[in-house]
Design a binder for these strands. Sequence first.
DNA 1: GAGATTTGACCCCA
DNA 2: TGGGGTCAAATCTC
Length: 182
Amino acid sequence: MNCTEPCKRRRVQRWTILTSVPHFDGYEWRKYGEKNIQGYKFPRSYYKCTHNKDQGCPATKTIQQKEDNDCNPPKYEVIYSLHHICKTMGTNTHLDKKYSSAPINNTSSTTTTSSCQANSSQPLLTLVADQLCPMESMLLSAEPQIEENGGIENSNTKSSPSTDLDFDSEWAKWLLSCTEKA
DNA sequence: GAGATTTGACCCCA
DNA sequence: TGGGGTCAAATCTC
């Protein structure tokens, strides 16, 4: 990471979702880091969009398992940063292949030592994975402006604020609906 | 062998 | 100065 300019790491769009199915959001993610966070029982995992390289998609998310509710089912705080610009919404091929038969606690890498195997292996995962995001058209129409150097700190000002708010809101609703149905 | 994950180190901000 | 976020080499999996 090069911060030749005043670092804008904190000035990105962020929104938080509380869900029991943090991996099923219609996108493909690749894990790039994990850290133990002070005050949290479980490590925080860091993910980038799989298409970060080939399509320059800047989207990232962090998944933090809540220290309470680690059963029935475990709850995860998912913090999304920046919108996707990749065009793979709703395919779920990667997710289906990777997660459809795996207990969710195993998808969050190493140390989620939940003992809730019965709940985590429920078909709810397939239900959510099969659900397509209704905001695909919004995603395509609300692409943030990407600068040549990859920085997107101006996306808030270049794109319509109301569009971003609508997108965030709809996106949050969709994720919550997935969680509820699960 | 390619791509994904793990893990320790590094960087930046509060 | 410590904690959070990211990088990148090593390792793993398919």
